[in-house]
Amino acid sequence: MVEKDEIVIAGAAGRQVLCGHCGADQDRWRRVLLNSGTSELLGFAAFSPEAIALTCTRCGKMVEFADGALDLRSAPQR
């Protein structure tokens, strides 16, 4: 697996993930919790499901994918 915050090229469902705003193909990634206000209030946020957030390296748009839905590989050095 690639390192957190490493610049990656992502794929999902057999297609390359491109930014919906600028069309770029490289992102930084990190794991995020999908917690609700109720789980925060009751102290259960640590048990919330995880997702993968991709942040476009060109424009900064963020998108989330279910954990395990992405194929991440290191982007070539430019």
Rank of each mutant, 00 (worst) to 15 (best):
M1N: 07
M1V: 10
M1R: 04
V2R: 05
V2D: 02
E3T: 14
K4Y: 04
K4W: 06
D5R: 14
E6H: 12
E6K: 12
E6M: 10
I7R: 08
I7C: 04
V8C: 09
V8W: 03
I9R: 10
A10E: 06
A10P: 08
G11Y: 13
A12Y: 08
A12W: 08
A12I: 13
A12V: 15
A12H: 10
A13V: 09
A13R: 15
A13H: 14
G14V: 05
G14W: 03
G14M: 02
G14E: 03
R15G: 03
R15T: 14
R15M: 03
R15F: 08
R15Y: 14
R15S: 03
Q16N: 03
V17T: 02
V17F: 06
L18T: 13
L18W: 03
C19M: 07
G20C: 12
G20Y: 06
G20W: 00
G23T: 11
G23M: 10
A24H: 15
D25I: 03
D25H: 09
D25P: 00
D25E: 15
D27W: 13
D27E: 11
R28G: 04
R28L: 09
R28I: 01
W29E: 06
W29P: 00
R30T: 12
R30M: 01
R31Y: 14
V32Y: 05
L33Y: 04
L33V: 04
L33K: 09
N35R: 01
N35F: 12
N35L: 01
N35E: 11
N35A: 10
S39Q: 09
E40K: 04
L42D: 01
G43K: 00
G43I: 03
F44K: 00
A45M: 00
A45F: 00
A45I: 00
A46C: 06
F47C: 02
F47K: 05
F47R: 07
E50A: 01
E50W: 04
E50S: 08
E50Q: 05
A51Y: 08
A51S: 04
A51R: 04
A51K: 05
I52C: 08
I52T: 13
A53S: 12
A53F: 00
A53R: 13
L54N: 00
L54P: 01
L54A: 07
L54M: 07
T55H: 07
T55D: 01
T55P: 02
C56T: 10
C56W: 05
T57I: 12
T57S: 11
R58M: 05
R58N: 08
R58S: 12
C59M: 11
C59T: 12
C59D: 08
C59V: 04
C59I: 13
G60Y: 07
G60N: 10
G60H: 06
K61D: 06
K61P: 00
V63N: 10
V63H: 11
V63C: 06
V63G: 10
E64N: 14
E64D: 15
E64M: 11
F65P: 02
F65N: 08
D67L: 15
D67M: 15
D67G: 06
D67V: 14
D67P: 05
G68H: 14
A69E: 10
L70Q: 07
L70F: 05
D71M: 11
L72G: 06
L72P: 02
R73S: 15
S74C: 09
S74N: 05
A75P: 01
A75W: 06
A75D: 06
P76D: 13
P76K: 07
Q77H: 09
R78M: 14
R78T: 15
R78Y: 12
